[in-house]
Write a protein that binds this DNA or RNA. Structure first.
Lengths: 361, 361
DNA sequence: ACGGATGATGTAAGCGTGTACATGCACGGC
DNA sequence: GCCGTGCATGTACACGCTTACATCATCCGT
């Protein structure tokens, strides 16, 4: 049987109240007494019972982290960021992986985190209004990544800015047929991120005077394989794109693989730009929009610390910058644009016609 | 203020004991009463206080998961596997990321999980004898991945078998100069996995009559970049390897990148085999030894369930099989072996001499 | 018709802390 | 020498639940 506070009190020759005070570093305990208590606790290898402590004090020392997919690179990276700062402040992490829809529903039906955590961190989870309401009703500070919930702390990247940077990069390289591989397009609960990015993609094209073509938007569901098949769909268009913006690096990887399968060169025939700066992006020399992933986790955790310490009453909102990382998968458009018209193409490579034929097959 | 069991009892017109029984589905509660209690709880949107419950019952409904790196693919995948089965049994996950050495030490100094979890899952964490002892002294079931702790449940792959399969694959392709990119070679606490793999690598080579050359073992620290620099070290040897076994796919990725940087073809000039079957391996067409990662997490969780239910008293040990996945990064050795001596090489490619010169530079 | 099962429910004692309040003590100013 | 102050410590209740035990009604067999 593990030692309780009573054992420590007895051994130190004081009351349990004094033990409690001494152990938590409260004032009004003489140095000699504190010393004795600490020694007694040490000798009994006493560990406080978190449940009793929580029950009595109302504080749990635990933060719930709710997310859709622990096993995806992005989320695991964010969790690592969260962990690093919460751990340093002796807060534990209770992990809730709500990717499965039934698990998701069950979570909101039973609210297992109510009374169990001091604060909540919600990562990029599509939530209905009722679900948002349910979270807020827990009456603990909430920090949200991506989505926005009124009254909650907030961290996100500027998706519109990142997207327009990506699309403009392609336009500046002379591309006019620019495809987009989108993520999670028909989720009824609505990830807001894909919506914003898709909207921005259309807006930027329109601003550049490029006509809108719905066929150039292919859903990729954020996975490598799905990215590949989205790419193949784009390639099978009568007039396939010369550049593709994939809204996640993973989908861009799939696209790259598909391109190499069908024998198209990157970036000579098709340019590809991703989003995230996944650890593998550098490996594959993928041009991408970098976002500081682990850092966002740290920021969320810091917000929680602020909220718990009461340092700042008003929930803050942080928008972290994205950055265009130009690597080897984006280049000048292959079709002759005005400034290239008089220049002969330096390499043999497939002709545009031949190119189209390959794709149309 | 959230409703307590007393409120529910009052509303249902019964005692708190009956509420407790009804809510947990215990027998000896009439259907009518149970119905009334459930409705009352529903109407008050009552959530049980886990702390009070734990304090009273001694059960926490929580499993601690201790691991070195949440943000690495392998571990996040295992966590997802664990989560899927624990979640289905209403067990929560308390995550402890002990990658940082100071965090690790602090964890074992304070044992914050004592009294806080019903069971423990330890993923592949290097532990001193004292630390193992400390975990066991928590007196809860422990399931361990990779390492072995006496008296604990155990899941692992057969590292010796996987490694020898990989190395034999290279030998069968005619390779005699076979390098190995190793992980975490000098960790004083000792990850056992790299040790077993390195040992097996040497043994298999010896069995094939290939002389031992310590220069062919390059530490890669399990990262992509480190894998790349390990590869460059191997390439700078006077007599560089024609094949490389990287004991993780990530290091293999780095190796591939380095090879393509220096202009060597894979597998014509150098063969590469990895370990894990990382999601990106298929993308890069990497030959590798596949291990069922998420499945191992599920197995660990199942062992915990068995232990908690008292189904099987004796801790079990499960060894899951690995599988050689042959893809495009391994091929016949470029140097002329007896059976190739009279055959002319089909492609132009760099001559062996030229090859060596490139590398020695 | 009556004793004893059997099943439904209530009573109350913990579980191990935190903390408001009471207590006791030393000290200093008048 | 007395009283108020401030600090160190003890007392005891609350936190919200589980559960052993007591109680009570019901029902069955003889």
């Amino acid at each position: 049987m593990a030692a309780s506070i009573i054992d420590v009190a007895r051994r130190a020759g004081v009351s349990t109240a004094t033990v409690s005070r001494a152990l938590r570093g409260l004032p009004n305990v003489s140095e000699a007494t504190r010393e004795r208590v600490l020694r007694a606790a040490e000798e009994l290898s006493y560990t406080i019972s978190p449940h009793a402590s929580s029950l009595a004090s109302g504080r749990t020392g635990t933060v719930g982290v709710v997310l859709p997919f622990v096993n995806r690179w992005f989320y695991s990276q964010v969790v690592a960021g969260i962990d690093s700062v919460l751990r340093a402040n002796d807060l534990d992490i209770l992990l809730y992986n709500l990717g499965d829809e039934r698990v998701h529903e069950r979570f909101f039906a039973r609210m297992p985190l109510r009374r169990r955590v001091d604060a909540l961190i919600v990562l990029n989870l599509p939530l209905s209004a009722a679900e948002r309401e349910a979270l807020v009703s827990m009456e603990v500070p909430i920090a949200v990544l991506g989505t926005r919930i009124p009254g909650c702390w907030h961290v996100s990247i500027d998706n519109a800015e990142g997207t327009s940077t990506a699309v403009r990069h392609l336009i500046n390289l002379g591309h006019r047929r620019i495809g987009m591989i989108t993520g999670a397009p028909v989720d009824p609960r609505g990830f807001t991120t894909p919506i914003v990015r898709q909207h921005t993609y259309r807006t930027v094209l329109a601003q550049a005077g490029i006509p809108y073509d719905p066929d150039l938007e292919a859903p990729g569901h954020l996975g490598i394989k799905e990215g590949a098949s989205a790419m193949s769909r784009l390639l099978s268009l009568p007039d396939p794109p010369t550049a593709v913006f994939a809204e996640s690096d993973q989908m861009a990887f799939g696209a790259l693989r598909m391109l190499s399968r069908v024998g198209l060169r990157v970036p000579e025939d098709v340019s590809v730009i991703g989003f995230d700066d996944h650890e593998t992006a550098e490996l594959l020399d993928l041009t991408t929009i970098a976002q500081p992933v682990a850092h966002q986790g740290e920021l969320l955790a810091r917000q929680i610390l602020d909220a718990l310490s009461g340092a700042s009453e008003e929930p803050s909102r942080v928008v972290v910058p994205t950055e265009l990382i130009v690597r080897g998968t984006t280049g000048a458009a292959p079709v002759a644009r005005p400034r290239y018209q008089t220049v002969s193409l330096p390499r043999p490579g497939p002709e545009p016609d031949q190119h189209s034929r390959t794709l149309a097959r």
